[in-house]
Design a protein around this nucleic acid. Structure first.
Lengths: 341, 341
DNA sequence: ATACGGAGATTAATCGTTTAATCATTGCGT
DNA sequence: ACGCAATGATTAAACGATTAATCTCCGTAT
């Protein structure tokens, strides 16, 4: 009982016009030798019938599914919407579909998710690895988006440079003591950002780093970061490694009656959805997701074309880091001259 | 030049074991009549060779692609990660893959995105419609997740009840004047929430509604909401229709030196990522994404099974609204007795 | 002895598309 | 006229999996 498919197919168009299937295929794809008029007639008729080619049939014949996989091991990451959108856009522009797979943070599930994608016949995939998990080559070309210092990284924002931009920005505003607020010391991205920030500081400036996960392991999750105390100690700027942590810092400061930015400046990373709308709006650096996705997809597709879609390769690209852009808003300002030591 | 596919297929296994393809297929699917021992041998050998069935071949023959579509017309919505995760989880559990499509807010693009999914052979799709766009039945079963008052809605959080819970919560805290803060008056979801909140208020309480988009059209985007003034007017509670607006309200109040919650309470909707970590942490109501996704997927699959995957139907489910759950945190508290009129 | 039944396997058709190979027709140069 | 090439179309063979139909034994009942 082969299920009778209702949609028109090549053969239906063919018999209906009294020509052969091959001719119809050629006419629609513009590949073989078909006369102008006939090709035109065929196209018209196909459109009339609302013909949509069966991806299944095509995939079977050509071995190309026209689908890429997107693996998100850390889907809770709030920058995911932008990323997914950019990837989907780039893939769609190239005529590909995007199959998502989520591993909910679990490494075993990640492997399984990758396998599922392979079974579904993806020609390649884009992986945003969860914290420093090493991607063992899958059964197809893989593009990794993480950070330049991650081995096997294909392309990513230039987190170092982004850090530098922030460090430099705070330096120019006259800040001397900077507290860097990160989430997890095991993250390659966050470490690169820390390094970047430090490289942007001037002689005479000092910085310390506060890791929230470490703190919360002692004081419980959702605990105070003790920033008011830090302010008393002389810190005038808080450079968070993500807008989420920046938000946490900002609200804590405000709650404790410390004005931002007149008393202390706060900066973030990634330009997440809330950054423009909070008060004060958040100074941050944005990744150029569009370009990153573009590069990831195009080098992925190039690898697929040259080496086939069944070989497990880590895709490389000429441009492996894309500059981040500083967005100055209201949360950063000149250091209070009365408070700098 | 049919590209030679490297992976083992049924026929390779068959010849390698000296049996027929059909037998191998039967053994692996457990369908036909194959002796115990032979079936065992075949399975072993298949596993050894790392056989993965070609979805293309299977899809072509059976007409079932094993793939569902997820249409997100407003992918920038920060609740997307949770949603995508829940949908992907439910679909994976049912043995389906999830193809995403984004229409970037554009209605024309939305139609095109739906068509692309159909071309890719999805058996059905889940659509989260952008603001009140009516989903004209596509060429396959469609489950809509929006709100109960949307015609054609399959399942959604019970936004009315969620609103009621918030209204009731504020009433119990002794608030009298409530300002409801929404984004867009054209959103079904937001309107249901407004109605819900009002229904939770007690006699003697009053509420007004502030639509941010309307305000921004006059005063420019990112403008102040003028909440300090509202506080002076006697409002003691601000009920935002989304955590994003709640965050905006909260930071604006704090910036203006108004303490939350001792002077004014703030509540949100959706329990977005930042709600637990800001200071004060945000009182909100959460959607049960897991259950919603579960219901959407299972009724979608049921429709596909009974009516086939080529008929454009709006899927219905017995349970069309899933209760929301109040999460009381620090941003809401008793109304200041000296300030209630 | 013959027919029957059933288990265990194979044959072959089919899904829809692509494409190399082939065939038929016509025009054109010598 | 005859061969040759170009053009326009057809034939047929895949791709890989599924499945209805068929075939082959072999044991057993009539």
């Amino acid at each position: 009982m082969p299920p009778t498919r209702p949609g028109p197919n090549l053969s239906r168009i063919a018999t209906s016009l009294g020509v052969s299937v091959a001719t119809v295929s050629n006419a629609l794809s513009g590949k073989g030798r078909v006369s102008e008029q006939l090709a035109e007639r065929i196209k018209e008729h196909a459109a009339e019938l609302g013909y949509v080619p069966s991806q299944a049939g095509r995939a079977l014949r050509t071995g190309r599914s026209g689908v890429l996989g997107l693996v998100l091991p850390d889907i809770a990451n709030p920058l995911f919407p932008k990323l997914a959108q950019a990837i989907e856009f780039a893939a769609t522009a190239a005529g590909y579909g995007v199959l998502i797979a989520d591993s909910r943070g679990d490494v075993a599930t990640q492997t399984e998710a990758i396998n599922r994608l392979v079974e579904r016949g993806v020609e390649g995939m884009v992986i945003i690895p969860r914290r420093a998990t090493r991607i063992s080559a899958a059964a197809c070309p893989v593009a990794v988006i993480d950070t330049a210092s991650t081995p096997g990284n294909t392309v990513a924002a230039d987190h170092m440079q982004g850090g530098w931009v922030i460090g430099n920005h705070l330096a120019e505003l006259g800040h001397r003591r900077i507290l860097i607020i990160g989430n997890n010391p095991g993250s390659n991205v966050q470490n690169d950002r820390v390094g970047g920030i430090r490289s942007g500081l001037r002689p005479g400036m000092s910085s310390a780093t506060l890791w929230i996960e470490t703190l919360e392991r002692q004081s419980g999750s959702g605990c105070s970061l003790g920033l008011a105390e830090k302010v008393r100690e002389g810190y005038t700027a808080f450079a968070a490694l993500s807008d989420l942590q920046a938000l946490r810092a900002l609200t804590e400061l405000q709650r404790d009656g410390i004005d931002v930015p007149s008393v202390a400046s706060v900066t973030g990373f990634d330009d997440l959805i809330w950054s423009p709308v909070i008060t004060p709006s958040l100074t941050t650096v944005a990744m150029d997701m569009h370009t990153i996705a573009e590069i990831a997809i195009s080098s992925l597709l190039q690898t697929i074309q040259t080496r086939g879609s069944r070989e497990g390769v880590l895709v490389e690209s000429e441009t492996d880091r894309v500059p981040m852009q500083l967005i100055v808003r209201q949360s950063s300002g000149p250091a209070d001259p009365t408070r700098i030591s």
